[in-house]
Design a protein around this nucleic acid. Sequence first.
DNA 1: TGACTATATGGTCAAACAACCATATAATAT
DNA 2: ATATTATATGGTTGTTTGACCATATAGTCA
Lengths: 204, 204
Amino acid sequence: MEPLTEKQQKVLRFIEGRLRNGSPPSQREIAKHFGLAQNAVYQLVGYLRKKGYLVDSGGHRGLRLSKEYLSKKGGPAGIPVVGRVAAGEPILAEENIEGYMNFEELFGRSKDTFILKVIGDSMVDEGIMDGDFVVVKPTATIENGQIGVALLDDEATVKRIYIHRGRIALKSANKAAGYKTRYVKRGDKTVRIIGKVMGCFKLL
Amino acid sequence: MEPLTEKQQKVLRFIEGRLRNGSPPSQREIAKHFGLAQNAVYQLVGYLRKKGYLVDSGGHRGLRLSKEYLSKKGGPAGIPVVGRVAAGEPILAEENIEGYMNFEELFGRSKDTFILKVIGDSMVDEGIMDGDFVVVKPTATIENGQIGVALLDDEATVKRIYIHRGRIALKSANKAAGYKTRYVKRGDKTVRIIGKVMGCFKLL
DNA sequence: TGACTATATGGTCAAACAACCATATAATAT
DNA sequence: ATATTATATGGTTGTTTGACCATATAGTCA
């Protein structure tokens, strides 16, 4: 991405702040904040768009950060990821921070993403335990062997999903109970793949 | 808080969705979405304001969720948590949504919260596996037996932390390798408790 | 010298916008 | 019966807004 001038950075930072706090500012609001004419802002915003930092959604107050820029900086609400922690330094010193993580982007959040509480230990070998939460993204297709959520007899279950000889196979991962595989006919109305599991989290 | 009518709920949910996706909708956008006149929305929004769900920031596109409502539902960027999934209905139908989860609030995020990548299987029995990420909140104190991060010989380790007879004990949770407990003198300079682990997540 | 980038002002304009008015209907509560 | 609440339409108004035009200056690069 093309580098920004100091002025452009300032304006971008202002817009980011406002986006975090609710909604994007109008050009006139930006102008007022920096003591500029509305048009100066129009130009600056033009550069930010041209350089790929901002996206224009069209209408009034349509300023958004571009996906490129968001992924570059780890999203608007990124939490710092710490690599090696050196003894003397403060933990969040710049040297320790490897990057920023943003849950929304991490889990590939889209409008229809949802969270499901896991019941049972069928995926314990994958580190998904009873009481954990899985982040599910509804999809039409699923890759063979991916962990997904399937609706089986009206009950949502988290399973590894395989397509084997035209049949959908749901596989648990639990050594203790044995790796159970349940085959269900494709098109069978009692099974329906809902989506794939993007991630899992637990609260301690 | 005063309960909402069905219509009011629908409008509120629409506004919430838009707020999540960037910026609040205009009254006309809401009206168009529901096939109403702008004025009908003006009235509905008036009720939502009167009942304390929305706050009016003034100008154009000034709709915001009130603090009351936000704290009630768990934050602005909540992902819907789905309980039982009924067969026929769309997954995100109102009936299925039990609530909303917000990572930032879930993990008790503060300014100094950070993420640490877990190396090794020492906490595998707790469902924290190699490659997972833990969300760490720096704290001065830690409750006995809580999972925390300690700096041991300049290496950050995720362990259950016990205070036993004036000594800090770090305990792994891994049946296969046995539950190792390492005792370190309190005040020993080679150990330093950094904070407690608020949660753990993995990407699949 | 000339082209281009970046920053800046002042002015204009059409569209979008929230607010408000008058009016209507149906349900509920007093 | 009457008042209130909730929902709805159509129309008006004054403001906000993004876009655009003309113009200017200062710096960089060919």
